[in-house]
Amino acid sequence: MSVLAVRDLAKAFGGVQAVRDISFAVDSGELLALIGPNGAGKTTCFNMLNGQLRPDHGSVTLDGREITGLKPRAVWRLGVGRTFQITATFGSMTVRENVQIALISHHRRAFSFWPRARDLYGAEADALLARVGMAEQADRPAAVLAYGDLKRLELAVALANAPRLLLMDEPTAGMAPKERVELMALVAGIVRAEGIAVLFTEHDMDVVFAHADRIIVLNRGELIADGKPDAVRADPRVQQVYLGGGSTFGHAG
């Protein structure tokens, strides 16, 4: 069964149909890329999945359970982790503390007044950091991390509540080509090992074609393609509205 199943999802803003009746699904261990021109409705679509926006109609289910219209916090508790296009971390805290905060929330200790936060779930945090290769940097302030390391920290934070689905908004934006490949390889390794489903948006076609198991393409709120990378790449309509002649990205599959 699919981890995430989206059926007939739609949203309009002041008469403009931002997303119209789209349906797709993501399986366990699968990386699904969502691509399309700026303003095609990718962000709207994402925000309906994570609970930021309430769809006009349609349904979103997680492991068969209806999550349509739930608040972001409730969606998170049911196992949907998120990473952002521009990293969002707690700059005044160390790398370990960043993960500890997520764990404190996961274990519902946020309103606790007695222990020190730094004494809670340290080992659990270190284990998560080790999985993304950040163990050595646990004691550094998050504010001084290199960009690629911030992305890995975000991933560790997103994994803190053992999610079923990861929503990643342009996970490799602003990274050097090799770092992009490394980060996505790391993500792919973790999600396949644990059967997590991933939906990500991305502008770097090299990343998309190298790592996506499947691609869906949005244009003007409509789903115009859904298939394996090679098929999507060869689709004339996708080339016309989005990919162009292919001269500005690599050709390696």
Binding site: P37, N38, A173, Y242, G244, S247, T248
Partner: peptide, 14 residues
């Protein structure tokens, strides 16, 4: 100039 733009737009930028 090409960051975050669709490949078709990047071609226009060229």
């Amino acid at each position: 100039p090409s960051e975050g733009l669709a490949p078709v737009i990047v071609e226009q930028m060229v």
